[in-house]
């Protein structure tokens, strides 16, 4: 090899007998790494994984507040699956999640895109507003008044416009819709979208403009593709969060009317209040399984990285193999 002649003079000095690499420094570094990681790992184990494992075990028992715990196999699961209220709770959770994503997920994306067109100063003010710590409990209570059928803001608007008196949260058909609406004013994700958009090189937009792209084409061919990984991540979070919805229905309707807004987590909470630990854990595990399933399907179905080369189709892979 040509290289050898070129460096021969340099190698000559160290003829052969090389001691094996002495990675003592890297070993020390690895030890340091573990020392720094230890607290986090420990906390995670104690507060995260241990409860998860315990509840998994408990779901197969007849755990009560007091007394012996005996292994009962799938008894709790059977009971839960046959409980009509569980089916209802799951239905509520799923409808809530779907409604919430359909109605509120797109809005922050649009707002972020439109804000990018605004002058810097306006953008800064909007970001400030988004950063303001909004207590979701406070907001929920406020909205309860907005929805109040007797003296609520919305009722007075409705009647003022000549409509009949509306039931709002008291209608079991409409309650989930009204519960989702307040999510519109929570722009939390918008901030993340805005940050993503700001990281897109301006030259992309300039090039597109020179190439003749109009406003919508720029959004469609640049903004959205660049935001795709973040949108998908936020979608995943939204699905997970909404399937576990608890505080809004809890605070605004307490699951009513007639269980029409009782979500799965709320039902877990109710069962817990009845001290049925085994049932509560079994139901939690069922919910956990559902969410895992949804997440797994999403991850499988959607490709996150917009810049990755297109996936080879199965057929292409097969024919390629044949070539070799």
């Amino acid at each position: 090899m040509t290289t050898d002649t070129a460096v021969a003079d340099a190698t000559a000095a160290e003829d052969g007998a090389q001691p094996p690499a002495t990675p003592s420094r890297s070993r020390r570094r690895r030890r340091q790494l573990w020392i720094f990681l230890a607290p986090a790992v420990l906390l995670n184990l104690v507060w995260g994984w241990y409860p998860l494992a315990t509840s998994f075990v408990l779901s197969f028992t007849d755990a009560r507040l007091r007394g012996d715990v005996t292994f009962t196999g799938f008894e709790s699961y059977e009971r839960m699956i046959n409980d009509p209220l569980v089916a209802q709770a799951f239905r509520v959770s799923i409808i809530f999640a779907v409604l919430s994503i359909v109605l509120t997920f797109v809005v922050p994306i649009l707002v972020a895109i439109l804000l990018m067109e605004m002058p810097r100063r306006t953008m800064r003010w909007m970001m400030l507003l988004w950063f303001l710590p909004l207590s979701s409990v406070g907001t929920a209570i406020l909205w309860r008044y907005v929805y109040n059928t007797d003296y609520g803001l919305l009722q007075s608007i409705a009647t003022g416009l000549g409509f009949d008196r509306q039931p709002f949260l008291n209608s079991s058909d409409q309650v989930l819709f009204w519960l989702v609406i307040p999510g519109l004013v929570l722009y939390g994700p918008g901030l993340i979208y805005l940050a993503t958009l700001q990281s897109v090189p301006t030259s992309y937009y300039e090039a597109a403009e020179i190439e003749g792209a109009g406003f919508w084409r720029k959004i469609w061919t640049i903004s959205l593709p660049r935001m795709r990984p973040v949108i998908l991540m936020m979608l995943m979070f939204a699905v997970i969060g909404n399937l576990q919805q608890f505080e809004w229905p809890m605070l605004m309707t307490d699951g009513g009317p007639g269980g029409a807004s009782r979500t799965a987590v709320m039902y877990v909470y109710d069962i817990l209040n009845q001290l049925r630990y085994a049932d509560a854990t079994a139901l939690s595990i069922l919910l956990f399984a559902l969410i895992m399933l949804v997440v797994a399907v999403m991850r499988f179905a959607i490709r996150e990285d917009p810049d990755a080369p297109p996936r080879r189709s199965l057929r292409e892979l097969v024919t390629r193999k044949g070539d070799h």
């Binding site: 160290e14 090389q18 001691p19 094996p20 690499a21 002495t22 003592s24 420094r25």
Partner: peptide
């Protein structure tokens, strides 16, 4: 991964 770096006569791996 392997090989040595010497500053004058000193192996500086550590």
């Amino acid at each position: 991964d392997c090989g040595t770096v010497h500053y004058d006569e000193h192996d500086v791996a550590d």
